[in-house]
């Protein structure tokens, strides 16, 4: 193994990111999901900071700090409060049973890894091998959004997808320009708040956060 130790740690964190994605797929409780999301953010923040340190890309520190503040502290806190207020902390069965979801997840991972191989060979960064994991994280988050019927897991899935994209940017090109990142972070923040307000509205209208009820809204 020719990599330096902190890059090995980055690889380890990338693997943890994927592990957490799978844990999210198999998690039935919304509170557990929020906690896992916070951990995913933490792994992301640490790995971003480490990449910044080992490659001398100092703007990555700001991204790491931003991730830490938003995704590890602010949003999980917000979600915890939301879950408490809306009283949706119980077990929720996903629409496809969990082992099947995990099997699909494995297939997605194989697909993502092979997809990333040629791209990462073109990329010149030292962290390029983690690109496959980033893509897998995005796909798995997407899968989670598909299999959940409740509103909050869907939003968490969306945010996890954003985590994956962020990680992809870090591993392929040492992150996006800071301005873009700030913009995205702001977008996400506003999005979450707007969705939070939405939740209350949805629940008031349908007396539930189950998005199956949205089917009633279609015409005819």
């Amino acid at each position: 193994m020719s990599l330096t130790y902190h890059l090995q740690v980055v690889n380890l964190l990338a693997a943890l990111l994927l592990l957490i994605s799978f844990a999210m797929l198999s998690q039935r409780r919304i509170v557990g999901l929020v906690t896992l999301f916070a951990w995913q953010g933490a792994a992301l923040a640490v790995s971003t900071a480490l990449v910044g340190w080992s490659t001398g890309q100092h703007h990555l520190y700001y991204s790491a700090a931003l991730t830490l503040a938003l995704k590890v502290i602010a949003m999980p806190w917000f979600f915890y409060r939301l879950v408490k207020k809306l009283d949706v902390g119980r077990d929720v069965e996903p629409m496809i049973n969990i082992p099947t979801t995990m099997l699909i997840g494995i297939v997605l991972v194989i697909f993502a890894f092979n997809l990333a191989l040629p791209i990462s060979q073109m990329s010149g960064t030292v962290t390029r091998s983690t690109l496959g994991i980033a893509m897998a994280t995005v796909l798995l988050a997407f899968l989670m959004m598909i299999t959940r019927s409740k509103a909050i897991p869907q939003v968490i899935g969306f945010l996890a997808m954003e985590n994956g994209l962020f990680f992809a940017a870090t591993s392929a090109t040492y992150g996006m320009p800071l301005v873009v990142e700030m913009g995205v972070a702001l977008d996400v923040l506003v999005g979450v708040f707007v969705l939070g307000i939405f939740f209350f509205q949805i629940r008031e209208t349908f007396d539930s956060l189950d998005l199956k009820h949205m089917e009633k809204l279609k015409e005819r």
Binding site: A15, L18, I106, I110
Partner: peptide
């Protein structure tokens, strides 16, 4: 319990996949 162990099984398979990607 089968779900619990199925998860363990898939994690083992994932471990091998990660090995091929990173190591």
């Amino acid at each position: 319990a089968p779900e619990f162990l199925g998860t363990a099984f898939l994690l083992g398979v994932l471990g091998m996949l990660i090995h091929f990607l990173l190591e």
